[in-house]
Design a protein around this nucleic acid. Structure first.
Length: 835
RNA sequence: GGGCGGGUGGUGGAAUUGGUAUACACGUAGGACUUAAAAUCCUAUGACCGUAAGGUUGUGAGGGUUCAAGUCCCUCCCCGCCCACCA
């Protein structure tokens, strides 16, 4: 019977219904069974799933199903990262409510995921916009507040004029808003921050534990956290009481410091310029810089601007008076907001010094080319060398001098060793509606007061008009804003900012452990059993933000003694992008392929199989509809193979295998080899593309064997051959089950197996002995060229092998016994003869 | 500028980690079946020379180590991603 699109629809919906009614993938905490927690990065519910989702979730599903067949208690949940701006934009556009729009999208997404046949425990499904979930966001926030990890601070923040909200540093991409690409500007605001910097040392240190993360993700996090060792050096200001502290990682160049630069916002600047001739010029410059957006200031190829402020600093190592500048290339947020400038050995200082015609002094000489001179320099010399013009440190290699000078300065009291981090505290306030309300109350008498636990959740008011203009929508809802102070009971005002959505996704994997618990954030016992996530899967775009925040929250919750693990994700897989015509598939490019259309034409199994077969999971995947057709053909072939064998005749399933001839042995070997290789591709790095190729090899072998069987003169193959054939097909179906679960179920049922669902049948095992062959073919090389293929018995002794080799005409043509210099044997692989 | 990946047939990709390069698929060509088409099946398929047997060559380029290199070492070119005035 041909296998049609209609058959597929029927088969797939039949088994989806079966899994649903039997709750096949529902799991509970069971301390007697080994657990396995597979998780994909949950989706933002935009309504439709795209190929990126399909790829991500298919990879996760195949792993989950495999682990299930290996006997693990597998937790494989799904939820929705449902807060965020698109819902507000859609609400404005469609004149609806963000909640309504979001829940409609979730429903649609839920149905699409079901059609893919993913093995989720649907009983654990939730959305972050459910009050039952975000209540615990608020709870975490208050716990952080109580420990000083959530705090309010006025500062210059990144502001997106289009979204009318603040952005975290991590959300500013090349000076633009990560969401709408509008140029980000600076604005002074009072905002809530999370003190992630307190965890910087452990976030960095514990990266070492994450051996099963891609090295590039670890490297990206390491760069982002950005630990640097250096020295804070104190420069006294000439004729003043003030001292400037500068941070440097290059103390070896201190003798070459010819000026000092402060950030324009530096707190000392106004004090130092009071009454100087340069006062007005300096103030003008500060004003000018403040109007420049931070992104513009931070882009590297900007000309370095600055002005002399009319004051001098004393270099502590040589008592030289050097001018003090303010410059836009010095950032207040990093280090101490002040630098010592060594133009000869720092490119930025070099450019600044050239522009302002400032003095330079070489303090490191190039070992290979010792004629380095200021006149000839066209750029700073940042390589290694020996110190010169550096007093007692002359002739010291600069790497060594770094340490020596740092220690010497510490001893003399000129400075102290210090460590600086690139990581900044995380700004989480958003002036938006569709997010978790920050559970804080402002009371004129009591100050900032957290909402008490029994009043949680602080629910989002339902009837709010979203216009996208005029700042936070919540601020205009009187019934929301006006409240009683929990401490003194007097009228107070509620915080109207909501949390950044990254907050929601920083701990959802814990909530999946006990999603219906309304008394606690999660059940400690459940979390203890399921955590950490054994396999996490998602896009590389989350390498920094989400993964760093999730690690931070995990560490914090561990410090609250709620969990025992300090890292959330043991193993991480970052799947590659889906491309079409060599470009990333995206709506804006208009080159998307709708999974829904593929589903209605080919069904989920074909789509799953293609997407896994076309490329290894971590690589980019080029969409190819011909390849899709190929996956369809393969499934069809296997289906017909099973149907032909099991639907018409009853086949005796009894009897052992007594392999009689080469064909029998070959098939049995291929069967075992397929089990071995497919299993390996799961256990050693998820090479699903080769796993599927091994399934195809087995299918080819079965076909070949059946064809021989039909042409046998003796007519029907005997019982043992029937059994071998059945067993091989059975193996093929079992190995196929994680990849194409619907067809596999159907075939399993057709085969009359007693188990209700193949998803719970044990994964097949192989016998190493069956992989052996009685004869093998090896290559014979003469002087590195393959000259013959010879058939030998395994592990043949060298003398015999030598005879056989030389007797081969192809070898004899190039090598005679007398001329042999070397005779190298790679056991059971090849022979290499040197003449 | 810094970090991390890559570069293999017409295409997607394999290669047991130094041991017969191109598994498996896609595509293409030829054939079978068919009134015909689709579907399916069979055969061939890195390039070059040759009717063939066979030979030469071949994993971005060039060198090296080795009996043997896609894999190791050196020099260089190109592509992708991430970070970047971070002192």
């Amino acid at each position: 019977m041909p296998y049609t699109t209609n058959d597929i629809r029927n088969i797939e919906s039949k088994w989806q219904k079966f899994w649903e009614t039997h709750k096949t993938f529902r799991v509970d905490t069971d301390p007697l069974k080994p657990k396995y927690y597979v998780l994909e990065m949950f989706p933002y519910p935009s309504g439709k799933i795209h190929m990126g989702h399909v790829r991500n979730y298919t990879i996760a599903d195949v792993i989950a199903r495999y682990k299930m067949m290996r006997g693990f208690n597998v937790l494989h949940p799904i939820g929705y990262d449902a807060f965020g701006q698109p819902a507000e934009n859609a609400a404005i556009k469609n004149k609806t409510n963000p909640a309504e729009w979001t829940y409609r999208c979730i429903k649609q997404m839920h149905d699409e995921l079901k059609k893919m046949g993913f093995s989720y425990d649907w009983d654990r499904e939730f959305s972050t916009c459910d009050a039952e979930y975000y209540k615990w966001n608020q709870w975490i926030f208050i716990k952080m507040f109580e420990r000083g990890l959530a705090y309010k601070k006025a500062s210059s923040v990144n502001w997106c004029p289009d979204c009318e909200t603040t952005l975290a540093n991590e959300e500013v991409i090349n000076g633009t808003c990560w969401r709408c690409k509008t140029t980000v500007v600076q604005k002074d605001l009072e905002q809530w921050y999370l003190k992630i910097t307190q965890y910087a040392p452990s976030l960095l240190e514990d990266l070492k534990k994450l051996e099963q993360w891609p090295s590039r993700v670890r490297a990206m996090q390491e760069n982002w956290i950005g630990k640097s060792y250096g020295v804070e050096i104190l420069f006294k200001v000439k004729d003043a009481a003030e001292t400037i502290s500068v941070f440097t990682t290059r103390p070896d160049t201190i003798f070459g410091a010819t000026y000092v630069v402060l950030a324009p916002e530096h707190s000392l600047v106004k004090k130092l310029i009071a009454g100087t001739k340069q006062e007005k010029e300096t103030l003008d410059f500060i004003e000018k810089t403040a109007n420049k957006s931070k992104s513009l200031r931070m882009s590297g190829d900007q000309r370095k601007e600055g002005v002399f402020i009319g004051r001098y600093a004393i270099n502590p190592v040589n008592n030289e008076a050097i001018p003090i500048f303010i410059g836009d290339y010095v950032l207040m947020e990093y280090g101490t907001g002040a630098i010592m400038a060594v133009p000869t050995h720092d490119q930025r200082d070099f450019e600044f010094a050239k522009h302002h015609k400032l003095p330079m002094r070489i303090v490191i000489q190039d070992l290979k080319n010792p004629s380095l001179s200021i006149e000839d320099m066209s750029q700073a010399y940042e390589e290694e060398g020996l110190l010169v013009n550096s007093g007692e440190f002359d002739k010291t290699p600069n790497e060594e001098a770094k340490k020596k000078i740092a220690e010497w300065m510490q001893l003399k009291g000129f400075g102290k060793l210090s460590i600086h981090w690139r990581l900044r505290d995380w700004l989480i306030s958003r002036q938006r509606y569709w997010g978790t309300p920050i559970p804080m109350i402002y009371c004129a008498a009591c100050g900032v007061v957290p909402v008490p636990f029994h009043q949680l959740p602080v629910e989002l008011p339902k009837d709010v008009t979203i216009t996208g203009e005029g700042g936070s929508p919540l601020a205009r809802v009187r019934t929301f804003v006006e409240c009683a102070c929990p401490k003194c009971g007097k009228p107070a005002r509620r915080e109207t900012d909501t949390m950044a959505t990254f907050f929601d996704s920083s701990w959802y994997f814990l909530r999946f452990c006990s999603p219906r618990n309304n008394e606690e954030i999660f059940d400690k016992k459940d979390a203890q059993y399921w955590m950490p996530v054994d396999q996490y899967i998602g896009g590389i775009e989350h390498a920094i933000l989400h993964l760093l925040y999730a690690r931070f929250f995990t560490k914090f919750l561990k410090d609250l003694d709620l969990i025992t693990t300090d890292e959330p994700f043991t193993r991480l897989l970052t799947q590659g992008m889906v491309l079409k015509d060599n470009e990333v598939m995206s709506k804006s490019r208009g080159n998307t392929v709708d999974p829904d259309e593929v589903l209605s034409q080919y069904g989920a199994d074909t789509l799953r199989l293609f997407i896994l077969f076309a490329a290894p999971p971590e690589d980019q995947l080029e969409w190819n509809s011909d390849g899709l057709e190929g996956s369809w053909r393969f499934l069809n072939r296997v289906y017909q193979m099973v149907e032909k064998r099991y639907s018409t005749t009853v086949i005796p399933a009894q009897g052992g295998i007594h392999n009689q001839n080469d064909a029998d042995n070959t098939l049995e070997r291929e069967r075992n080899a397929a089990i071995k290789r497919v299993t390996q591709s799961f256990e050693e790095g998820y090479k699903f593309n080769t796993a599927i190729s091994h399934l195809m090899v087995l299918a080819n072998a079965i076909d070949k064997y059946s064809n021989i069987g039909h042409s046998r003169e003796s007519g029907n193959p005997d019982t043992s051959q029937q059994t071998l054939l059945n067993q091989s097909i059975e193996t093929l179906v079992l190995l196929l089950a994680p990849f194409a679960p619907h067809v596999a179920e159907e075939m399993w049922q057709m085969m009359g197996k007693s188990e209700a669902t193949i998803a719970q049948v044990a994964w097949p095992t192989f016998d190493e002995k069956a992989l052996k062959t009685s004869t093998i073919i090896i290559a014979v090389q003469v002087n590195g060229r393959v000259r013959a293929q010879i058939q030998i018995t395994p592990d043949m002794p060298q003398e015999e092998l030598r005879k056989i080799c030389l007797a081969d005409p192809g070898v004899a043509k190039y090598a005679q016994e007398a001329a042999i210099k070397k005779f190298i044997v790679v056991p059971n692989k090849l022979v290499s003869i040197v003449v």
